[in-house]
Simulated assay, not measured.
Amino acid sequence: MKATWNNQILAESEAIVVIENNHYFPIESVKTEFLKSSDTHTICPWKGTASYYTLVVDGEVNKDAAWYYPEPKEAAAEIAGYVAFWKGVKIS
């Protein structure tokens, strides 16, 4: 699986975890040079508190287009160390 945005591969891995139709990529498969930490956080009742990254590719910015759970709840332990994408990021 690949995550692409703005003609750039952001992540590529066969070790994907799919939860609620979201594809989570292992952090080691993500090109972290395109990630900028965000102050945004949301809460999922069963996964825990999500933190976000803003994507920056070739000067283009996609605010909060990636998220992860730094300390997922036990029910979502399998996505610890994984990153998911949305907001126009193509998963193929």
Rank of each mutant, 00 (worst) to 15 (best):
W46I: 02
Y24F: 13
E28F: 05
G48P: 06
K47I: 06
Y53H: 11
F34M: 09
A77K: 06
G48M: 14
V18H: 05
S13E: 15
K63F: 15
V83W: 15
T40C: 07
W46A: 09
G48R: 08
D64Y: 15
A76E: 03
N21V: 01
D39R: 03
T54L: 10
T42L: 13
Y24I: 02
F85H: 11
T54K: 09
W46S: 06
G59L: 13
T49F: 08
T54I: 09
K31N: 09
A76Y: 05
S51F: 07
F85D: 06
L55A: 03
E14C: 03
A76V: 08
I19S: 02
S37H: 05
S29G: 05
P72G: 14
T54G: 10
Y68C: 13
E20I: 15
A84L: 11
S37P: 00
Y82T: 03
V56E: 01
H41K: 08
K47M: 11
L55Q: 00
Y69W: 12
A66L: 06
S13D: 14
T42Y: 15
A11K: 07
D39E: 10
I27P: 01
L55C: 05
E28N: 10
G81D: 09
P70N: 15
W86D: 01
I27L: 12
K63C: 10
V61D: 05
P45S: 06
K47Y: 15
F34Q: 04
S51K: 05
N22H: 10
W67P: 00
E33D: 09
Y69I: 07
E71H: 09
P72D: 10
C44P: 01
I43C: 04
E74C: 03
K63L: 14
V61G: 02
T49Y: 07
T49I: 13
D64N: 10
E78K: 05
P45C: 07
V17S: 05
E20R: 11
